[in-house]
Every structure is written in structure tokens, then in C-alpha cells.
């Protein structure tokens, strides 16, 4: 049976839109998907004309589609943006080296400048080395903390004004549930904003905040975009896995669930008088931190001291230990600064 496109263009539908269950033809789907991303960008004034935008490119589906669509919209609607690709090489053999190949192909195809920064250059450690030290259980902590900062460093290096990441609606919904489950009230508040910026750091934009993961895949599939699709070789974080599974189950029950969760997240307001950690800058490296010394520096110090587990879990204890050492020997502070 042939189904007509519900947008009334007269063509035959080729897909069922995961977000609304409407049957659409290819052209109308492209148009719908692009228009929605465009609306998100315009209604939040995500970018200003003349800005340099660093696209966090991993070679995965989200960032591949993001690079493609930003380039497309930038030309179509005259955003006046300069787009650059920024990749972080975590140093994971069999995962990142392969996905970087896909980024390089994108670079040629879309004709956007690409910069690759590695953990090895920035921190002196590759993820492979870190896993050798800490084992497979907590390595995601290192990778997550380091990547967040690495993108920032890279973007500053390239004189960018804003970082755009490929976080999609599924990721946002997952993060909301995750933060509820772990009681992280400060992040619960922050994770729903479409653009996050704080003193001394580059703003981060999520143009795909309302775009379903499945639609991103559909878009890439029909546009025949080339992306890398393999899970990281190191075990994914088990606890986030629970939240992820719940989001997928909810979506299966009711397709609008993902956007409903984001709506719920946007409406959460914190009671007056609840203490939230203050965001400041790290005294060692100058990047955003909610502590005197940022998590990345604490983790790195643990690694360099040969005690990689130092900062996992009880973060404050490690911080106190490091601070005490610093006080005893103020010279070490400047030596840490020299490292960066």
C-alpha cells in the first residue's frame, strides 16, 4: 500500500517520522528537519553574524549531521558564520583513530577547516595509558572531564566565539533523568538550557536540542552522510545506561515522550534557599570550575602522582590533600601552571 505524504505535497511517503508518527516523503522530511533546527537556532539567538563557530566533531552521526546542516543553513539563511571542525583525539586505539578518519572525509566533503587536538598533547596521557592505570571501571570519568575541557581549549586556540555540539533530544532527556536519579540539582537546572555560558568560558550551543536521535539517523541515511558508528571500546558508563534504556522504553510507548521529558526538565524550578555550587575558575589552569581546583586538574594530578584513583568518588578529600600539599610548597603551584 502506498501512503501519501502527510504534508500534502502529493508525493508518496517513504518514512514515518519518529517524532510525530506522520508519514512524509523525503523532501518534506528534509525540509521539516532543517526548518526545526533553524527555528531552534533563530528563536534562541544561538549565533550572531560574524562569529566563528567550532563544531565539536567526533565522526559520529550527531556531529556529522550537525556539520552538514550548519553549513547548509549558514548558506541558505545567511547566518554569516565561519564554521570550523574541532576534533579531540582521546587516544583510544580501534575507536578514535577510525572515527577520526571519518571526520577527515567530512572535512574534504564539506570543505571546512579541521583541527585535531589530542589528550596526549594537552595532558600528556592518552586514554589507552589512563585505562592501563585505572582499569576499565572508572575511565569514563577521566575521558568525560578531559574532553569537556579539551574542546574549550581547542576552541580558544582557534579563536572561536562559540562551541556547537551534537547533543540531541534523546541525550538531553537522558541527562535530565540521570541528574534526577543521582540527585544532581545544579546540573538538573543547567542541562536543559540550549546554550550554556558562564564567566570565563566559551558558550556551548546545542542546535539539536529538540531533534530526535532517530531523525538524525534517518536524515543521515537518506542524505547518505558518511559517519562512524561503533561504541567506544571501553565499557560504557553503566549508570547512564539505565537512564538511556528508560528513555528508549518511554519513546517506544509514546513517541512524544522525549520532548515531554525535556518540557518537564525545563519546568523544574529549584526552591529558594537551596544551596547550589558556585561556578568559578580553577586556580591552577583558569578554566571553569565549581571548586578551587577543577576536576581535570585534580584527576591529572592523581595520574601524575601515580595515584589515579585519588579523585574518583570523594572529590573533596582529594582536593583537600592537594591543597594542603600546595600550601606546604607554594612553588609547586607555579610548576603546575607551567605544565599548561
Amino acid at each position: 500500500m502506498v501512503v501519501q505524504c502527510s504534508a500534502g505535497c502529493g508525493c508518496n511517503a517513504v518514512l514515518k517520522r519518529p517524532k510525530t508518527n506522520d508519514a512524509l516523503c523525503k523532501t518534506c522530511f528534509y525540509w521539516a528537519f532543517e526548518t526545526e533546527v533553524h527555528h531552534t537556532i533563530m528563536s534562541t539567538k544561538m549565533f550572531q553574524s560574524g562569529q566563528v563557530v567550532a563544531i565539536g566533531a567526533s565522526g559520529g552521526k550527531d556531529s556529522t549531521v550537525l556539520a552538514y546542516i550548519l553549513k547548509h543553513l549558514n548558506e541558505k539563511y545567511n547566518y554569516g558564520l565561519k564554521l570550523v571542525l574541532l576534533s579531540i583525539d582521546e587516544g583510544i586505539t580501534g575507536y578514535r583513530d577510525d572515527s577520526l578518519e571519518s571526520v577527515k572525509r567530512n572535512q574534504e566533503e564539506y570543505n571546512l577547516p579541521l583541527t585535531v587536538l589530542s589528550y596526549k598533547d594537552l595532558y600528556g596521557w592518552t586514554m589507552d595509558d589512563i585505562v592501563k592505570q585505572v582499569g576499565r571501571k572508572n575511565n569514563c570519568t577521566f575521558c568525560g572531564v578531559f574532553r569537556r575541557q579539551a574542546l574549550e581549549r581547542g576552541a580558544i586556540l582557534l579563536n572561536c566565539d562559540v562551541i556547537a555540539t551534537g547533543h540531541n533530544a534523546d541525550d538531553v532527556a537522558e541527562t535530565i533523568l540521570m541528574n534526577l536519579l543521582r540527585g544532581d540539582i545544579a546540573r538538573l537546572q543547567r542541562c536543559t538550557s540550549h546554550i550554556t555560558s558562564s564567566e570565563g568560558s566559551l558558550p556551548r550551543a546545542k542546535p539539536f536540542k529538540y531533534a530526535y536521535e532517530k531523525e538524525i539517523v534517518l536524515y543521515a541515511y537518506f542524505k547518505k552522510l558518511d559517519y562512524f558508528a561503533t561504541e567506544c571500546v571501553y565499557a560504557p558508563d553503566a549508570y547512564r545506561g539505565h537512564a538511556r534504556a528508560l528513555v528508549k522504553d518511554l519513546e517506544a510507548l509514546r513517541s512524544t515522550s522525549i520532548i515531554d521529558i525535556i518540557h518537564a526538565g525545563e519546568q523544574l524550578a529549584i526552591k529558594d534557599g537551596v544551596k547550589l555550587p558556585k561556578q568559578g575558575v580553577c586556580s591552577a589552569c583558569g578554566f571553569v570550575s565549581s571548586n578551587v581546583i577543577c576536576k581535570a586538574c585534580v584527576l591529572l594530578e592523581g595520574l601524575n602522582r601515580g595515584r589515579p584513583k585519588l579523585a574518583i568518588g570523594k572529590s573533596n578529600k582529594a582536593l583537600a590533600e592537594i591543597l594542603a600539599d600546595r600550601l606546604a610548597n607554594t612553588a609547586s603551584l607555579s610548576s603546575v601552571q607551567d605544565q599548561f
Binding site: E90, T141, R182, C232, P236, Y239
Partner: peptide, 13 residues
Amino acid sequence: MCSINEENLPVDT
């Protein structure tokens, strides 16, 4: 890309 996009610090829970 790795699915862990923010700091994922193991908490007691």
C-alpha cells in the same frame, strides 16, 4: 562519539 557527554562522577548512589 562517546555517549558520556558531561562529567560522570560516581556518586554514592
